[in-house]
């Protein structure tokens, strides 16, 4: 049973991702800003984090850096998938440099999202 955290401040985008993932995964948490996500990450363990780049309080990028800062942190090895509105080249490279495992630009193909999620989850096992 894989547990997934979705972080997105846009309710429709969040819902879309949820509906797509609900086909195969049931255990999904969501956070609508960086602060909330960080609180959840400190509390629970997740198998995958799906985040947007631009978030209130703590940006997606900063969140990834926070996660990857300390190897003893429980989410340190959790794979991160960025699903973002940003298509700008620099920002994509920044995302990967920060330690994200994959980057998906919106609008996305739900099949594509599912296969990437699957890949990240199996790689993590």
């Amino acid at each position: 049973m894989s547990r997934i955290l979705i972080i997105n401040d846009n309710p429709i985008a969040m819902k879309t991702i949820e509906v797509v993932l609900e086909k195969e995964y049931q255990d999904i948490d969501n956070a609508k800003d960086g602060k909330m996500a960080w609180a959840l990450l400190k509390q629970k363990e997740y198998d995958l984090i799906i985040t947007e780049m631009m978030l209130p309080y703590i940006t997606g990028l900063e969140l990834i850096f926070k996660i990857k800062k300390d190897a003893t942190f429980k989410a340190y090895y959790t794979p991160v998938l960025i699903v973002s509105d940003i298509h700008e080249e620099d920002a994509v490279t920044e995302g990967f440099n920060a330690g994200a495992n994959d980057y998906l630009k919106k609008p996305f193909d739900p099949g594509d999202l599912l296969s990437r999620v699957k890949k990240l989850l199996t790689a993590n096992l």
Binding site: G34, Y57, I58, T59, I86, H87, E88, A91
Partner: peptide, 10 residues
């Protein structure tokens, strides 16, 4: 912090 989190890619 609020200025750092402005919505803009670049």
């Amino acid at each position: 912090r609020s200025l750092l989190t402005l919505y803009y890619p670049k």
